[in-house]
Nucleic acid binder design. Structure first.
Lengths: 217, 217
DNA sequence: ATAAAAAATTTTGTATACATAATAAAGAAA
DNA sequence: TTTCTTTATTATGTATACAAAATTTTTTAT
């Protein structure tokens, strides 16, 4: 009994899993039981395994041979390592995005950002993760550098998937996003680059803070 | 009829394919016929497909649905985009490597570098690709940042796999490598970072040169 | 002979089968 | 009971089976 059609099942499964990580449906350290997931996604284990392989390579999953695949959990030091990379890549992306700007997309992000700012804390927190992912992804896409886009998108996902509970003040983030978007809108590459640098730097420092606090306790 | 044992076949196949790209056995735009490759590697198509998925994600392969997988060929502009990224990441890696130095490994690289310098042009050229890959990989590994390591290693492979015939003067590269290694050996992080930056920058400029020349013709 | 259509072949994508390792459950000994 | 074996169950890794798409070859018509 064969399924009718399905445009690139591999890709679909892959994206579903990514979304499940972003949404928190799949949490760090969770074991991914193949048959169970396959049934949930209505596919066989074959495309699932291909997706696992991809996600393993981008460090969203870990594979323990003969034991299975697990959602990768990163500790604070690893998170810091990721921010060290993002700090160098995202400003580049923002710079390029300001040159290759797609106004419509940026306007949309602006509106989303404003809308989010109006929500009460609870709603804001529940929607922030996917919003933040979209924010960074859209800009990196706009950089027109597919290599950059793919890399950063993995790192964003790892970050967001592992950052439960210790998100920095989300409203500060929104404010910084606005500055970045405005710089891009005015084609001010340098300013966009700087603003993105600052934005990532603050997040990175927050992690360093956490590490210090933990070391003391 | 089942094969006896095989420690992580997935991984083996994946690494074989990477090696085949590095060595030039698999060239850009080549189609990867599944059954053919599977036989060559003595495995079934299942682990092969997982490896393909990984390599696709790291942009070493392209998949055209219902058509198959191809070795990705990158044009000069894409190559430039990759160097833009390497320019930001590899100096970071060199910096960290200088702190976490493993002397033995660096000594080994030193010796290899010297040995290569003594070869005549033909031999040098034929060995340079895998040497260069090892050089950059070893340093990134030493940075102790697995995210950085994985990413840069993909980019190096794409670069080397697509750079046939237009390698810059290889002896200049060797000289730069020596400077980098010496900086790492003396734990001079800043100098290692700078030297790596210069090294990648020269390569990047070489690509820009090529682009200009092509635009004129 | 050339072009178009039809048939045969190959190749891909996905599901399934099956051996072996890993885990859980049941039973025996202390 | 608690702990150690032994047995049963489940899950993973890999090979294989098979439908549908893509490609090649052959046939037919102009």
């Amino acid at each position: 009994m064969y399924k009718v059609i399905a445009e690139d099942l591999n890709q679909q499964v892959y994206e579903s899993l990514r979304y499940m990580i972003l949404s928190g449906e799949l949490v760090p350290d969770q074991k991914l039981v193949q048959e169970e997931l396959a049934q949930r996604l209505q596919v066989s284990r074959t495309p699932l395994l291909s997706a696992f392989a991809k996600l393993e390579r981008e460090m969203l999953l870990t594979s323990i041979p003969r034991r299975g695949y697990y959602v990768r959990s990163v500790n604070l030091n690893e998170l810091l390592q990721i921010y060290e990379i993002r700090l160098r890549l995202e400003p580049l992306g923002a710079y390029e995005a300001a040159s290759n700007i797609n106004e419509e997309e940026i306007e949309k992000l602006m509106i989303k950002t404003e809308a989010l700012g109006l929500l009460d804390d609870e709603k804001l927190n529940s929607q922030f993760r996917s919003y933040d992912y979209a924010f960074h992804s859209t800009i990196m896409q706009m950089s027109n550098n597919p290599f950059l886009e793919k890399m950063v998108s993995s790192f964003n996902l790892v970050t967001l998937g592992n950052l439960t509970g210790m998100l920095r003040n989300v409203r500060d983030s929104l404010a910084e996003h606005t500055v970045i978007l405005r710089s891009i809108l005015t084609h001010d590459s340098e300013k966009a680059e700087q603003a993105m640098f600052k934005h990532v730097e603050v997040a990175k420092k927050r992690i360093e803070q956490y590490i210090l606090e933990k070391d003391c306790s």
